[in-house]
Structures are given as C-alpha cells and as structure tokens.
Write a protein that binds this DNA or RNA. Sequence first.
DNA 1: GTGCATCCTCTAGCCACTAGAGGAGCAAGC
DNA 2: GCTTGCTCCTCTAGTGGCTAGAGGATGCAC
Lengths: 130, 130
Amino acid sequence: MTISIGQLAAASGVKIPTIRFYEEIGLMPTALRAANDRRIYGQEGVQRLAFIRHARQLGFSVEAIRNLLDLSDHPERHCGEANRLAAVQLDDVEARIAQLETLRVELRRMVDAACNGQAGDCRVIEALAG
Amino acid sequence: MTISIGQLAAASGVKIPTIRFYEEIGLMPTALRAANDRRIYGQEGVQRLAFIRHARQLGFSVEAIRNLLDLSDHPERHCGEANRLAAVQLDDVEARIAQLETLRVELRRMVDAACNGQAGDCRVIEALAG
DNA sequence: GTGCATCCTCTAGCCACTAGAGGAGCAAGC
DNA sequence: GCTTGCTCCTCTAGTGGCTAGAGGATGCAC
C-alpha cells in the first residue's frame, strides 16, 4: 500500500513543501514516482518522516538528524554518537531555558512597572535605554 | 568627540557588519561621514546602538524595536504601545520556556537511558523513532 | 466537458545576520 | 619613499529551515 505526498503530509503533520525540501537536502530518500511522476511513499517513508519530525520538534539540527538517521539505518554501529548528540541537545536546551529565564525576569519587571503616561517617562523605554 | 565604527563596535559589543546592517534597515540613522568616507558616530549613536542591542538580547524583533525607538524619539507620545510590546514579548518568552521545559524532560529521559551498545538497541534512536 | 483538488518544478522570500571578495586610506617603521 | 598592517569601504552571496507563489499537468466527480 502506497500513499501520496499529500496523504503523507496529512498523516505526519509535515507540510508538503517541507517534505520535498527534506528530500532535496537528503533527509528523506529520493521518492519513488508513479507513472504520472507523482511521489509515492510506503511505510518506511512514514516512519522516517515521523523520526525527522520528532527530532526537529526536540530542536535537533538537520545535521544532527542526518547523523541520527544514519545510525538508525545501521543498527550494528555503536550508538555513542547518538548519546552524545542527545546530551549536546539537552545542554543546548538547558542553556536556552536559563537565558530565557533571565529575560523573563527582566521583562516581567518592565511589564510590572508599566506606566500609562508619556513615552518620555516610560519605564519600558527607560529600561531598554539602560 | 566622535568615534569610528570599529570603536563603536568595540564599545557596544555589536559587530561592524551588524552596525552597517542596522543602518541599512533603518534602525540606526544614516551615519555621518568623515572626509575619507568613513562613518563617524557621536554619543547619540552609542546610546541608540545600546538600546537596540539590549532590546535584541531581550528577543524583541527588529519591527518591535523600530516601534520602541520611535516612541523613544517622541517622548510626548503615549507609551501604551511600549507596554503592549513588552507584554507580548513576555508572553512569547514564557511560551518558549514552557515548550523548552517539555523538550528538556524528554531529552533528559533519553540521555539518562543512554546505552553503550549497538545503535539497533539504542534508546535515543528508539525514542526518536517513536 | 467543466470544475476543483492535487500534484509537479522552479524561483524567490523570510529573519537577522555573517562571510568573503576586492579595493582604498592611513600611520608606523625601515 | 616604500612596505607592512590595520581599519575601513561597497557589494554579493550564504546561513538555517523552511514558506510562498507562479505557471502548468493530471485526475476525479458531476
């Protein structure tokens, strides 16, 4: 049983142009074509796209996903690289959270100090001007 | 007393090409030029760039900064817009933190389950395949 | 046969920069 | 006076990860 790109898009939550883009950059394999030149996908296509989507949602870069897919395609290899990539990604996410927390505090202070007067006396503007 | 673009860059922590870029898109005003065509900046330039940099660090978009600078340039206006922009930015930051927290939990689980075997049995790969 | 949906390719745009080519000016040291 | 090295200039193109739109072919239902 094969499905069209539109069905794959609907099933995966990845937009059609994005699927074509993934094929172009080599995350998805070159799709088989029907006689009318339309792409057709099987179960592996669905699985691979799910993998990519999940990894993207977790913030992995395309390069990292390329490595992870490569490992997934070669189950006999040692998976140290996958662990490393996940750890790097975790560090990255934690660093971003920490930075955003700092911003949150500062923005919260700005918002709480919000005035209703003229821009000349505005705490938000003042805070940004430093 | 005037300074060069290089000195402005050093003083502000904003790279030279970025300062030129800010001028190009109208965040920084068209710089005055010395006889040798080099840009020269005064105190207002330093202040404006500091404002921009701070706002960018807080995650404000260029469009938002344009509005904030506009308000800052017109102190007689009502500052409701500045408050609104700050509130939107705060919401955005909080949403991003919430999403990253979710990712952090999932990545932490992946990293903690890290195996030392073959990719075929790898929890990281497994979790992504999902 | 006539809509309408779906698909195709190709090009260009988004954001906020960043990198690099190719060249000019200027001061210091030999 | 001449080289070396620094800073600056403009211009074009690239980054990541898509997204939008033009212009056209195909397929299916009425």
